[in-house]
């Protein structure tokens, strides 16, 4: 889908009396929520294997973890967007975090590539990474858990 066409659609939605738009057509997916301003799109590309999407969120560090009830308190860092998962800033570099790493809320834990943009994903909580739930190159859905964190001080 061409940029101009998408801009048109977004413009129409902005003007229209709808809050949510969901288009699925020939493998192209667009999810647009007006008031939250959260468009996500997913478009297969002929030329690039990686699948991308973009997602807008005003406060990405909020609302991206869900609580799991257990003895030691665990939280999942979930994806705020659709995108391709990368554990390191560039091939050959050290990963942002590994199992066993201690993270502080706000630390970058990975990047998700969507529409040729790399989006740094930050930890919403302080603690220890106890599980990495996805691998490099995985296409991540909105809300998909990425890491499990044992919440610490």
């Amino acid at each position: 889908m061409k940029t101009e066409r998408l801009r048109e659609i977004i413009h129409i939605v902005e003007e229209a009396d709808v809050d949510v738009l969901h288009i699925e057509e020939n493998g192209f997916k667009l999810y647009y929520e007006k008031n939250g301003a959260q468009p996500t799109m997913h478009q297969p590309s002929d030329h690039f294997k990686a699948k991308e999407a973009v997602h807008e969120e005003e406060h990405p560090s909020e609302e991206k973890s869900t609580h799991i009830e257990s003895d030691d308190k665990r939280e999942e860092i979930v994806s705020p967007m659709i995108g391709t998962f990368f554990s390191r800033p560039e091939p050959g570099a050290d990963p942002y975090v590994q199992v066993g790493s201690t993270v502080t809320a706000g630390d970058t834990v990975c990047v998700l590539e969507a529409m040729k943009l790399m989006n740094e994903i930050t930890a919403s909580t302080t603690g220890e990474i106890v599980d990495m739930l996805v691998s490099d190159g995985d296409v991540i859905e909105y809300g998909q858990p990425l890491f499990t964190v044992r919440v610490g001080e």
Partner: peptide, 15 residues
């Protein structure tokens, strides 16, 4: 082309 769309969405839609 894809990048333009991504940047457009990032910088102009709401937040």
């Amino acid at each position: 082309e894809e990048l333009k769309l991504g940047i457009y969405l990032k910088t102009t839609t709401g937040g």
